[in-house]
Amino acid sequence: MPERLSVLLLDDEPIVGKRLKPALAKLGCDVEIFENPGQALQRIAGKDFDIVVTDIRMDEIDGLQVLEEVLKKSPRTKVIMITGYAMMSVAREAMEKGAFDFISKPFSPDDLRSVIAKAAQSLGYSMDV
């Protein structure tokens, strides 16, 4: 197992990646940021990430499709869904499809850090938030 946790973060709003990347880097993660779901899926096809954090509502490809693609390719990857349009039905659907966690926006970098730490622990990494 590599020492550093690999994280892919996908959100079509650039500000999200910009704000979260330093917070996750502080945790010791190697973070790759994507705003385009198609490009993110291409990257996922070539690399098994430990954790994928994805927005749900995006043009063309939505987060639930990304979740399915990620788990098809790499079942051990923990997928964390983030959305500004949280609803019970979507949350339940995401969990049923295998999401590790579901967070509603707005959230603080600390909130995401603690979820990432939980995901990391479930993968066998020890991580202090």
């Binding site: 949280a86 949350a91 339940r92 969990m95 049923e96 966690d101 579901f102 509603s104 909130d111």
Partner: peptide, 8 residues
């Protein structure tokens, strides 16, 4: 799984 507790 849909009834599992999550952050939201």
């Amino acid at each position: 799984a849909r009834f599992r507790a999550m952050t939201y």
